[in-house]
Computed example of a mutant assay.
Amino acid sequence: MTSWMVFLCALAALGCVSAQGNRYENFNTDAIIQNERILLAYYKCVMDKGPCTKDGKNFKRALPETLSTACGRCSSKQKAVVRSLLLGIRTKSEPRFMELLDKYDPERLNRDSLYKFLITGV
């Protein structure tokens, strides 16, 4: 279940960062990681496996752009949050990380750019 929490935390933060701009500059990822129920709900939402809350819908709407641009429109702080969460997802659950990427980048058009962002933060 820890991998679910990390995965969902990342999804939530990705969506918050892109959909809400500066509102989530100080987003507390640790608080989300600690709540398995919330993380699972966000995961199910963005993966079309369950209902979405208002925030879940915003995350789901922002996720494709966030992944396809490797957080290109994110601020430095937002990039750090997104990068940390994606690396956490990948570390905790490579299959779920790949499932997320396959859903939102099925043609693998942005994988190199996204992996570069994960390695360098740029």
Rank of each mutant, 00 (worst) to 15 (best):
M1H: 14
M1S: 11
S3C: 13
W4P: 04
F7G: 03
F7Y: 10
C9V: 04
L11N: 00
A12L: 13
A13L: 07
L14V: 02
L14N: 03
V17S: 04
V17K: 01
S18L: 05
A19K: 00
G21Y: 11
R23G: 04
Y24H: 10
N26M: 02
T29A: 13
D30Q: 13
D30N: 15
A31E: 13
I32K: 12
N35G: 07
E36V: 12
I38D: 15
L39M: 13
L40A: 15
A41G: 09
K44G: 09
V46P: 00
M47E: 01
K49M: 08
K54E: 08
G56W: 00
K57S: 02
F59V: 02
K60E: 02
A62N: 00
L63D: 01
E65Y: 04
T66P: 01
T66Q: 02
S68M: 06
T69Y: 00
R73I: 08
S75H: 06
S76Y: 03
Q78I: 08
Q78E: 15
R83P: 02
R83C: 06
S84K: 12
L85S: 13
G88C: 12
I89C: 11
I89S: 14
R90I: 07
R90H: 14
T91L: 12
T91V: 09
S93G: 10
P95R: 06
R96S: 05
F97H: 08
F97G: 02
F97R: 03
M98A: 05
M98I: 09
M98N: 10
L100V: 12
L100D: 01
L101D: 01
L101S: 03
D102T: 12
K103H: 03
Y104T: 04
D105V: 07
D105P: 06
D105M: 06
E107Y: 14
R108W: 10
N110C: 09
S113E: 09
G121V: 02
G121W: 07
